[in-house]
Design a protein around this nucleic acid. Structure first.
Length: 200
DNA sequence: TTCTCGATTGTCT
DNA sequence: GACAATCGAGAAA
């Protein structure tokens, strides 16, 4: 229970860590108010050996530098010039693993999230997909590199138990350019949850 | 400095 | 089902 400690993020077994993140609660606290979602869908990116990762082959640039930080901070970047995608950096410093948040179940600050998404009523699509969850939570590239120990962003364990039977795994989305690596079953989601992105 | 293209989404047909 | 929107990182020159 409670705030996940930095040690949680230090493992370099990124897929296993991604499984453990399902059912945890991601909280953001900005001037607009506090918002929280239970994590229902993630994708693992195994830095150096993963063609779909920005850090494939240990490529290190200004943008990817964040992924080489010690586990427990946020990696946020702009995609298609429009969408801010939120990742959780994992593994010890120097190992560029990351986990992409793709879906969540709204728990707190739903009115704030609706406002950010410019929606007037709650619908599953509010937080289905990496770009939309990040928008709902108010996450932008300005927050790249932020600690996940607070005060603005953190992850809590609220005692929600997830069993292996509740987790489904499949190929990742939107990474066809990575050829064979796109087929790796690094996309994980909660089988029973409606708060996940629609399969393409 | 210039050029290409993306870990996506929403809208129109 | 098809496609435009939109901008900065990364690569080439």
């Amino acid at each position: 229970m409670g705030l996940l400690p930095v040690e949680f993020y230090q493992s370099d077994a990124v897929v296993s860590l991604a499984q453990q993140l399902l059912g945890k609660v991601l909280v953001t606290d900005f001037p607009a108010g506090r918002t929280a979602v239970m994590i229902t869908e993630v994708e693992a990116y195994e830095g150096p050996i993963d063609k779909a990762s920005h850090a494939f082959g240990n490529r290190k640039t200004k943008r990817t530098a964040t992924m080489y930080h010690s586990g427990g901070c946020a990696y946020i970047y702009l995609c298609y010039g429009i969408h801010h995608l939120f990742n959780i950096v994992t593994a010890p410093a120097g190992v560029p693993h990351a986990i992409l948040l793709r879906g969540g179940e709204p728990l707190e600050g739903i009115d704030i999230m609706l406002q950010r998404r410019k929606m007037d009523r709650l619908a599953y699509r509010m937080t289905a997909g990496p770009g939309t969850v990040a928008q709902a939570l108010g996450l932008t590239t300005k927050l790249d590199g932020q600690s996940l120990q607070g005060p603005n962003i953190w992850v809590e364990d609220r005692g929600i138990q997830i069993t292996p039977e509740q987790i489904k795994a499949g190929p990742r989305i939107g990474v066809d350019y990575a050829e064979d690596h796109a087929q790796w079953p690094y996309r994980l989601w909660l089988k029973e949850s409606p708060w996940v992105s629609r399969p393409r």
